[in-house]
């Protein structure tokens, strides 16, 4: 089993150079059955990461480019009258897939955003009075431009909470970028990529995450962290129970990726900025830029004792 995971990471690494940490985080998110939000500037490889993941996992993949005139029906699907059979037939939208890349989600109107986010949460879609389940697994990777860019509709906090993790890829290292210039287009390599995992194997991994052990000592630590966000004056509001559970589950998945059967506080600390960052807001200044969230997470980690002695 652990070979699969290493294989996956290495394979994606050949396409997405020098981004092992982010790849691991994305896998953590996938294994925890959560959805991923990637916040970055255009052209940083967001789409490539999503495609890689779908390809390697052997999953069905759809991509929707969000624009300001995109309507909910464009994502969910629509019932069309069939003249031959004289009845309405449902044409499934791109949401009926296993991996959905929602590109630049913050460029569409809130109406469309919430249609997708509801589907993410419920893992089913109700259209024309009929409830249709989404395929299993259902993994959404949404990308978003930083809000400073014009013409965007930033996601409200309640919507952000639906995303299990938020990561940002960042610029590649100088060395990696140089090899990008020299080598062939990584996307060419993408086409030749083989799927490494079967659906059953993926399910096994996802179930295995639940079995990773978290001792009382560790739960105490998580609880102290959550408490701190609720009572420290730098936080406008604290972490919700959903956020706390996400933190723990992400740490478990991270431990699994690192072939451990139990969670270490280091796991918590590594996944914390990605899981907690978009769920809290600092008090000073209203704008919630990534940099501020990162420093807020750092503040959180630096302020809470790992072991109470």
């Amino acid at each position: 089993m652990s070979q699969f995971i290493d294989n996956i990471i290495n394979t994606i690494g050949t396409v997405l150079l020098d981004k092992e940490h982010q790849v691991k985080l994305a896998l953590t998110c996938l294994f925890s059955r959560g959805h991923l939000l990637i916040e970055d500037l255009p052209g940083m490889g967001k789409t490539t990461l999503a495609q890689c993941l779908a390809q390697v996992m052997g999953l069905q993949y759809e991509r929707v480019q969000f624009t300001s005139d995109l309507l909910p029906a464009d994502i969910l699907g629509v019932a069309i009258f069939d003249r031959n059979s004289s009845e309405f037939r449902f044409h499934a939208g791109p949401v009926f897939t296993q991996v959905l890349l929602a590109d630049e989600i913050n460029r569409s109107t809130p109406k469309t955003q919430s249609a997708l986010l509801e589907a993410m949460e419920e893992r089913q879609v109700s259209i024309e009075g009929e409830t249709r389940p989404l395929p299993e697994p259902f993994f959404v990777i949404a990308t978003q431009n930083p809000q400073s860019q014009a013409g965007t509709y930033p996601l409200p906090e309640s919507q952000l909470d639906r995303f299990f993790m938020r990561i940002s890829l960042g610029y590649p290292s100088a060395q990696a970028e140089r090899s990008l210039y020299k080598g062939i287009d990584p996307r060419e390599r993408l086409k030749s990529m083989q799927s490494l995992v079967t659906l059953d194997q993926l399910h096994t991994i996802q179930n295995k995450v639940q079995e990773i052990k978290a001792t009382d000592q560790l739960l105490d630590y998580v609880q102290r962290l959550v408490d701190f966000t609720r009572y420290d004056e730098d936080f406008t509001y604290g972490l919700s129970p959903r956020g706390a559970i996400a933190l723990l589950r992400a740490a478990k998945a991270w431990a699994l990726i690192h072939k451990r059967e139990y969670v270490l506080p280091e796991d918590i600390q590594i996944v914390l900025p990605s899981v907690v960052g978009h769920r809290v807001r600092g008090k000073v200044g209203a704008s919630s830029t990534s940099a501020q969230h990162a420093s807020l997470s750092e503040h959180l980690i630096k302020s809470v004792n790992v072991v109470e002695t």
Partner: peptide, 10 residues
């Protein structure tokens, strides 16, 4: 002395 937020390993 351990700093605040430092894990035993760190």
């Amino acid at each position: 002395k351990p700093a605040q937020g430092e894990t035993p390993l760190q």
